[in-house]
Design a protein around this nucleic acid. Sequence first.
DNA 1: CAGTCTCTCGAACGTTGGTCGAGAGTGCGA
DNA 2: TCGCACTCTCGACCAACGTTCGAGAGACTG
Lengths: 241, 241
Amino acid sequence: MRAVDAKGNRAGGRGGRSGGVPGEVWLREPRARRDALTLDRIVATAVDLLDADGVAGLTMRRLADRLAVAPPTLYWHVKTKDDVLDLAVDAIFAEVPVPSGPWRDAVRELVLAWRATMLRHPWSPPLLGRPALGPNVLERTEFLQGALASAGFTGAHLAAATHGLANFVIGSALTQSTWHSPEALGTARAHLRARADDYPTLVANDHLADQDWDALFERGLDHFLTGLAQGIGSGPVSSPP
Amino acid sequence: MRAVDAKGNRAGGRGGRSGGVPGEVWLREPRARRDALTLDRIVATAVDLLDADGVAGLTMRRLADRLAVAPPTLYWHVKTKDDVLDLAVDAIFAEVPVPSGPWRDAVRELVLAWRATMLRHPWSPPLLGRPALGPNVLERTEFLQGALASAGFTGAHLAAATHGLANFVIGSALTQSTWHSPEALGTARAHLRARADDYPTLVANDHLADQDWDALFERGLDHFLTGLAQGIGSGPVSSPP
DNA sequence: CAGTCTCTCGAACGTTGGTCGAGAGTGCGA
DNA sequence: TCGCACTCTCGACCAACGTTCGAGAGACTG
């Protein structure tokens, strides 16, 4: 069953189920279906859809279509659409390599890769407004906190450092993905310039310019790391060997 | 017309329009309708709905119901539902007072109030994934950058400081609003503890504990401000008088 | 009193996320 | 070989959603 043509449309339309067209046997898929519908395939396809058209582009029907399957079928593998979103978010975190080395370099590396991945999938930052407890996310968080702990942070200092870094990355990615499209940026700048009287500083300094966001982020990150390393009270100062 | 009872249901159901019930005149609203439908009322009601039930709770139909109006009516005042969301986001920023004083204190104050407002409306952080160009948002941003500029920051340093602070606030609010409900936090911690082998550091340090988020945020903010004030290259060091 | 402009709404459309129960296909034990 | 149970798929259907259209009511203007 479920013979599909190249465009992914189900063959036969609403034709009779079994024993339909004579000789239909020969048209059937070979033996073991190598296109078995799995959770992994669902999630991967969802990520494709999200990358292509954003959150609005992910529809259970579109998703089913791409997988050459009827929409209700998805609900056997997945409980709700939110499940798909949660799984998609965790899936892209697998792209973030877990580094090694001295804590400050390792943290920098992780955070930069983290940000790069989110920007590669601009639909993801707002979705972090939902609890993310997937294995990939947790593994990276574990590493981050581990690195900071190995640097000597403890207690509230450790918590502040971990959350602070994570929040900084997430906020940056959210903001930058907002201004993803050049057109949006352009109209926004025009909007600002037309109100130069109200926002003299923003206009004078060309806020929302098409600037080097990467450099901006790294600068901010270094500020934060410096503040961290400087420590307050019991904070650590230097890198371990 | 449009007499409403206390529960906001339209009176008369589907009764005849004009010249319906005899004596209905006396039941009509006094003279000039003091419940005129305005954009402001729409937005204020939308914020109420969002506060009560989150983004999922805001429906054009529910909104119209609360305003004792038929759904299509809203579309005369507003182009799409997204308009309502954008306006709602800008509306809550009016709650953030614009401070004064030495730059570091003023910035701290603004940022803290900003965060507090977003947490009071936990639906708002993910919505910053959409361009926010309302007057209230821009006014606060203008102030933030103005304060930093008056502190001596210029060029890329200024941009990094402005965006860095904004991103830090947004990220913090997004993360914290994610774990808004104690139940979600509880199950998440249980989930973590059940996997102590995989996430030893997170479990040992009770990541996602029901901690003092405010203190955590202030600590992180101070780290950042310290890194900022310390400056890199041409960065400033001290507060102006 | 006609005309215009502002504002409201009933009816309806297309699409969405999701449910239900009927099956097809497969593997397994008797 | 049969029958049963389990896995997986789907057609039909549902309520709810955002939004459009055109018909008006009501209030001002000339």
